[in-house]
């Protein structure tokens, strides 16, 4: 397998990681803490959306991120012929 192909595989991996980490930070540090005042208008069960993100929403998004990463990387492995 050529180095170019390896590089393409690795850059595709880094792109997925970068996007995933942006969302990871957005839902926890963002919606859960820093941006909570902006979400204060959206009511959820006696409180606001930021509180929900801090206590539950961020965990659910983390789950989605990890499964999305596993699914996309396993597909990428196959496309680049590096799976086993």
């Amino acid at each position: 397998m050529s180095d170019d192909k390896d590089n393409a595989y690795w850059s595709a991996n880094l792109r997925i990681i970068a996007w995933s980490l942006v969302i990871w930070a957005l839902v926890s540090f963002g919606f859960g803490i820093l941006l909570r005042p902006l979400l204060s208008g959206i009511a959820v069960g006696g409180t606001d959306l930021g509180f929900w993100f801090a206590q539950q929403g961020s965990i659910l998004v983390f789950l989605a991120l990890i499964f999305n990463y596993a699914w996309r990387m396993n597909k990428l492995d196959h496309e680049h012929g590096v799976d086993e």
């Binding site: 990871w24 926890s28 859960g32 801090a54 961020s58 983390f62």
Partner: peptide, 10 residues
């Protein structure tokens, strides 16, 4: 604690 102890898994 909720975010920190789960976010590490990402």
């Amino acid at each position: 604690f909720l975010m920190g102890w789960t976010g590490g898994y990402v």
